[in-house]
């Protein structure tokens, strides 16, 4: 297992490195001079040169890159050009919205998808299984913003149970914070679930026809016991893989959900900063999200090793 973890860790670090170089170069290639972007099109050459010098943008690219990386590693994500706020502080504040939103949405999706997908697989060829497959199909077709709007209309406007949008900070009232997250999490979770159900269903179907499930029954398990005790454990391998891949999808979902429910999350902050041409803020925060996605997939790889002895012991 130690070798496996080290190999995956090396892979993780490699992926982070490649991603950081790509972001660093992409932003420079797309926008040309960073200082010119920050100052806008009316800026004089002297102003641009002066700003380049203050931000060290006149140094060679490898030096700038190295400097950026070292600061990132120290938790210094740079400074907003216009408001002079520290990006790390902005981000920390916003993570209080985005992390609960993304993780609860994912968790809800998984908690729905595993039992429902298993049930659908168990009832394949029957009406109940077909109905579930159909519902999941519809769920995949529904855009996440539409799900959000519908839920917001139903629970927020019609029933008036929950706020239709906006954010109450954790520091003010944690009940309020949770209330403002319920509908966004529900929209995100349902859409995640719709996608995952199909994968869970096919993974369980595949596993149900395996010889070892038959063996489990041959030594005394009922069909259901064999499915739950032996089948699901083996089906968890492909399911975990898909969940890892869906995390990128999830981040995309949070961007939309934060817009629909006017939540002051990280994704919305990035969008606003892109619009304001805050190159430094965008570069650092996007990098942060990419590290998160790669890290999740690193954890998925570790989980894979824990779940499957064949992978763990492979050299």
């Amino acid at each position: 297992m130690a070798i496996y973890v080290l190999r995956k860790l090396a892979f993780f670090l490699g992926a982070v490195f490649v991603a950081s170089v790509a972001i660093f170069l992409l932003i420079r290639a797309a926008g040309g001079n960073v200082a010119a972007i920050l100052l806008g099109k009316d800026a004089t050459a002297e102003a641009i040169n002066a700003l380049s010098h203050t931000y060290g943008l006149d140094r060679p690219l490898p030096v700038q890159y190295y400097d950026w990386l070292v600061k990132m590693a120290q938790g210094d994500l740079g400074q907003s050009f216009r408001t002079k706020e520290m990006v790390s502080e902005l981000v920390t504040e916003r993570l209080g919205v985005s992390i609960p939103l993304a993780l609860s949405g994912l968790l809800l999706g998984i908690l729905i998808a595993i039992p429902v997908g298993t049930y659908a697989a168990r009832n394949v060829g029957k009406l109940s299984g077909a109905v579930l497959a159909l519902i999941s199909q519809i769920g995949i077709a529904v855009p996440v913003f539409w799900a959000g709007i519908l839920l917001s209309v139903l629970f927020g406007v019609r029933l008036g149970w929950l706020p239709t949008g906006g954010w109450t900070d954790w520091s003010q009232s944690w009940v309020g914070a949770i209330r403002s997250l319920v509908l966004p999490v529900l929209s995100l979770g349902l859409i995640m679930a719709a996608v995952l159900i199909r994968y869970v269903r096919s993974a369980v179907l595949d596993v149900m026809n395996q010889d070892y499930v038959r063996t489990a029954r041959a030594v005394g398990m009922t069909r259901t016991q064999a499915l739950l005790n032996v089948g699901l454990r083996n089906a968890s391998l492909p399911i975990v893989t898909i969940i890892g891949l869906q995390v990128a999808e999830l981040i995309g979902g949070t961007v939309i959900i934060e817009m629909v429910f006017s939540l002051p999350g990280l994704s919305r902050m990035i969008l606003a900063n892109v619009a304001a041409r805050e190159v430094i803020v965008v570069q650092s925060t996007v990098m942060l999200i990419i590290v998160f996605v790669i890290a999740v997939n690193f954890l998925v790889d570790l989980l894979y090793g824990i779940l499957d002895p064949r992978i763990r012991n492979a050299t």
């Binding site: 395996q210 010889d211 070892y212 038959r214 063996t215 489990a216 029954r217 041959a218 030594v219 005394g220 398990m221 009922t222 069909r223 016991q225 032996v230 454990r233 083996n234 779940l307 499957d308 002895p309 064949r310």
Partner: peptide, 26 residues
């Protein structure tokens, strides 16, 4: 299936052809 499962492995049991695919890999 339930009543039968309590006998399988106890009063009657079966050895299958391919032991690699027939044993739980995990």
């Amino acid at each position: 299936d339930k009543a039968l499962s309590s006998r399988r492995g106890r009063t009657l049991s079966m050895v299958f052809q391919d032991p690699l695919s027939s044993l739980n890999p995990v």
